[in-house]
Amino acid sequence: MVVPSATASLGSWNWKRIVRNMFPLLVILSIIVLWAGITLESAEEWLDRYVILAVMVPTMVDMGGNLGAILSSRLSTRFHLGTTELDPTDRVLWANVGAVLALAATIFTALGIGAYLLGFAIGSTLPLSTLLLISLTSGMSVAVIAVVFSFAATYGSYRLGIDPDDTTIPIVTNVVDVFGMVIFIGVSIAVLGS
């Protein structure tokens, strides 16, 4: 449901309002991303054993955040234009979710194949099926999390009268970065063993 009273406050650009809304958010998100770094640090020895997975980490994390940013931007635009109500029967809304998930499947399949080809060139022994399993399981999980957080951040910002353009992308990309790291490491360990 569109909240008409919130649209009046979203139309004006005010740097003080943006800084007031963003500074505490960026501090919290910095702490969250620090946790992702600590997770990566603790998995360093394991990633040294499977070097090709270490090569996949930046792409896995980056693409998850990018998928969330795409959906967040589309949702924010629809809120600003007044063309969405977050109605479960909204076909355009589901088309956007479907497009993001299809893009995720394509990207993470390409990541698994690319990692295999690079691994083949450097002498990695991980088979294509294993890399595809890790890439697709991790990637599609991260894509679902990106969709959920895109909806939550956009709708929550809008309901609070905060311009979703100011908040959604930092929230979604940082949270998805952390989940992407943890999920990728967890799936990799589950598939390959510790």
Score class of each variant (00 low, 15 high):
Leu136Gly: 05
Gly180Thr: 01
Tyr155Val: 13
Gly11Ala: 09
Ile183Arg: 06
Leu26Gln: 12
Trp35Asn: 12
Ala6Asp: 03
Phe149Pro: 00
Ala69Gln: 02
Ser9Asn: 12
Thr89Lys: 14
Gly193Met: 03
Phe79Ser: 06
Arg17Met: 09
Ala143Gln: 05
Ser42Trp: 12
Ala153Val: 00
Leu117Met: 10
Ala190Met: 11
Met56Phe: 02
Lys16Ala: 14
Tyr155Arg: 12
Leu118Pro: 00
Leu81Pro: 06
Leu160Gln: 11
Ile134His: 00
Ser157Thr: 00
Gly186Ile: 05
Gly64Trp: 04
Gly139Glu: 00
Leu126Trp: 06
Ala43Phe: 07
Ser157Val: 05
Pro170Lys: 08
Leu81Arg: 07
Pro88Thr: 08
His80Asn: 03
Ile185Cys: 08
Arg20Leu: 14
Ala95Val: 01
Phe151Leu: 14
Val3Lys: 07
Leu67Lys: 05
Ser76Leu: 01
Leu53Ala: 02
Glu85Ala: 09
Phe179Trp: 09
Met140Leu: 15
Tyr50Gln: 02
Thr77Gln: 12
Val92Leu: 10
Val175Arg: 00
Trp15Ala: 13
Arg17Gly: 12
Leu136Asn: 12
Ser5Gln: 11
Ile171Gln: 07
Arg74Asn: 05
Leu103Arg: 06
Met60Lys: 04
Thr167Met: 11
Trp35Pro: 04
Gly98Asn: 11
Val97Lys: 01
Asp87Gln: 09
Tyr158Arg: 04
Ile171Cys: 11
Asp165Ser: 10
Ser194Leu: 15
Leu67Ser: 05
His80Ile: 01
